[in-house]
């Protein structure tokens, strides 16, 4: 039997993986810096919680609903703002995050400043990780598809992408919708795990926390994002040993990483890369290229080779 405390940390880790993967799609893969991811998380969380609490909806339906509502707002935000780029987009998403928080603070159905309490405790380790694995698989599939390549092309060079026939506005909105969907899904799981929601929990710092996971892991890398979410969920708990210096170490770790590994722990590393390493280690030869099964198992190795495949 695994200790309930570890199980809980791992469960929260799973929720963070889902949300970070959503942001990775927007920021890491499509290259659109979003500083408002917590807003989509809060939309999903509130929507799902209101559905289970006020309408007695089944948990799974509420999760799906929350994620879809978040995706809808992703599209809504996308239309006016995605013509902006770079810093301007970042500021717009930041503004959206604040607006969402203030609206929740004044919305009767969201319990205003008191928030929503007594949400059924329906999320657990297995529901979270089943959905996390599904999210990872979705991300890998998307990454290796025409859709994913269009996202990457926009990140690499928007003008060239348009010249290759990629309608960048259309795809950026899709990226925002999909990324927000996963933020909302994570939010719904969070709501039904923590059982209490308050607008103050979804401020700018929460957005930055999720962004840190993506950046630490390696922007655009799925294994990196998973590792980043894992590390940044576990580190504050592990560091409890150093007591009041905990947050100092935490901050120090981030600074250290950004100086010595600016591309993140697994920047440019993909599941196919990891698989190739494993093949090389076990068979002493390089792996075959594209197609076939993707997604190896393994972690912690350093990214020296930068073979990239989707």
């Amino acid at each position: 039997m695994i200790n309930a405390y570890y199980l809980q940390v791992l469960t929260i880790m799973g929720i963070n993986v889902i949300m970070a993967l959503g942001l990775n799609l927007i920021t890491g893969v499509t290259g659109q810096l979003s500083l408002g991811h917590a807003a989509f998380m809060s939309i999903g969380a509130y929507a799902a919680a209101i559905l289970t609490l006020n309408y007695g909806a089944p948990f799974w339906l509420a999760l799906l609903f929350g994620a879809l509502v978040a995706a809808f707002f992703g599209v809504l935000l996308g239309f006016p703002t995605l013509r902006l780029s770079g810093d301007y987009l970042a500021i717009a998403t930041m503004g959206f995050g604040e607006i969402t928080r203030v609206i929740l603070l004044n919305l009767d159905i969201a319990g205003r400043a008191l928030g929503i309490s007594g949400i059924p405790h329906s999320s657990n380790f297995s529901t979270v990780w089943i959905l996390a694995v599904l999210s990872i698989v979705t991300m890998v599939f998307v990454g290796n598809s025409r859709l994913g390549r269009a996202f990457l092309a926009i990140r690499e060079d928007e003008i060239a992408a348009e010249a290759m026939g990629v309608n960048s506005t259309y795809y950026k909105i899709q990226a925002f919708a999909l990324g927000s969907f996963f933020a909302g899904l994570g939010g719904g799981l969070y709501a039904h795990y923590i059982t209490y929601l308050n607008p103050s929990d979804f401020g700018f710092m929460k957005s930055i926390e999720i962004l840190n996971m993506v950046v630490l892991g390696g922007m655009g890398s799925i294994p990196g994002t998973i590792l980043g979410a894992g590390v940044l969920t576990a580190v504050p708990e592990v560091l409890r040993a150093v007591r009041e210096y905990r947050m100092l170490f935490y901050g120090g770790l981030l600074v250290f990483m950004m100086i010595f590994k600016p591309n993140g722990l697994l920047g440019g590393v993909h599941f196919s890369t990891i698989r190739n390493w494993l093949i090389r280690i076990f068979k002493g030869s390089a792996g075959s290229p594209a197609g076939g099964s993707r997604g190896g198992t393994g972690a912690g190795e350093d990214a020296k080779t930068r073979v990239q495949e989707g």
Binding site: Y6, L10, M13, W129, V133, E237, S293, T297
Partner: peptide, 24 residues
């Protein structure tokens, strides 16, 4: 081709082990 779940359960197991070693 192994199922995706199978692949990641090893990942999860790894993390579980790592964490339980830290705080045992």
């Amino acid at each position: 081709m192994r199922s995706a779940h199978g692949k990641f359960s090893r990942w999860i197991l790894f993390l579980v082990l790592a964490l339980s070693m830290i705080g045992s």
